[in-house]
Simulated assay, not measured.
Amino acid sequence: MPESNVSEAAKAVVRRNTEEVQGGGDYALFDALFADDFVDHTPQPGRTPDKAGALELYKTLRSAFPDFHAVIHWQATEGNLVTTYKTYHGTQEGEFFGIAPTGRTIQFETVDAMRVIDGKISEHWGVANLFSLMEQLGARPSAQ
């Protein structure tokens, strides 16, 4: 398969994860999109760097923010490695990292790189503006 086809197929897998799993809570699809030997090189605090840890994080986010979803601003590829810049949105209706439900609407930016092999996400690296998220939930003083 030409590299451009590999890149487009990889982008589609990552987009489905963002829109249908993270945004829609389709955990059966999560199982189909993630390799069993998936490795998260930047796991969130308290999460294991494997497929189970990623699923636990997704479920935690959707439990705390039932309307959790992302707006993808752009995706770039290098072969089977997909980098995505997106903004997550949601309303806190459940506990999140020990913070009781606030009813506040939040948004925070994330950049993820995901490697897709044979149609499955096999690796992840990412950074998220969690400081901004914690400010919006009232867990950190605002910088303003």
Rank of each mutant, 00 (worst) to 15 (best):
T102Y: 00
L133C: 01
A28E: 15
T84F: 08
Y88W: 12
Q107M: 09
P66E: 04
H73D: 13
L55H: 06
I121F: 02
V21Q: 06
E19G: 06
F34D: 05
F34M: 09
E8K: 13
E95Q: 01
K51Q: 04
G94A: 02
A100S: 03
A64F: 00
D67P: 02
M134A: 01
P49Y: 04
L133W: 01
E95H: 00
D112W: 11
R47G: 06
A113T: 15
L57F: 15
G138T: 01
D26I: 08
A9K: 12
G46C: 06
G103P: 06
G119P: 09
Y58C: 14
R16I: 04
S142I: 07
E109H: 11
P2Q: 13
D67N: 06
S7Y: 10
T102F: 00
I72K: 11
T87M: 08
M114R: 15
T60Y: 04
N129R: 04
S122D: 10
I121T: 03
A28R: 12
L33E: 05
A143P: 05
R104C: 01
N5E: 15
L61H: 07
S4I: 13
G25K: 03
G23W: 04
S7I: 07
G24H: 07
T91D: 02
R62H: 07
L55Q: 11
K51F: 07
Y85F: 12
E78A: 14
H69R: 15
Q107N: 15
I99G: 00
V13F: 10
I117G: 11
T102R: 00
V21A: 05
S4P: 04
F96D: 00
L57T: 14
W125P: 05
S4Y: 08
V6S: 09
W74H: 13
E3F: 07
W125C: 05
T102M: 01
T77E: 13
E109T: 13
M1L: 11
P49F: 02
H89E: 08
T87R: 10
L33Q: 04
V116S: 09
L81E: 14
F34E: 04
A12D: 11
V6M: 13
A113H: 13
Y88I: 05
E135S: 09
S132W: 05
S63V: 04
P45S: 08
P141I: 02
L61A: 06
F65G: 02
L57A: 13
R104P: 02
S4T: 09
A100H: 01
P45N: 11
P101Q: 01
E109F: 04
T83H: 11
R62Q: 09
P43K: 05
H69N: 14
R16V: 02
P66N: 03
G138I: 01
K11I: 07
Q22P: 04
T84Y: 08
G126F: 13
G25F: 06
E8I: 06
I99Y: 00
D37L: 10
G53M: 03
Q136M: 01
V39Y: 07
T110D: 14
T110N: 11
V39K: 07
P45I: 10
L133N: 01
G46L: 08
H41Q: 05
V71N: 13
G23P: 07
E123G: 03
V13P: 03
E78T: 13
V82Q: 12
Y58T: 14
D50G: 11
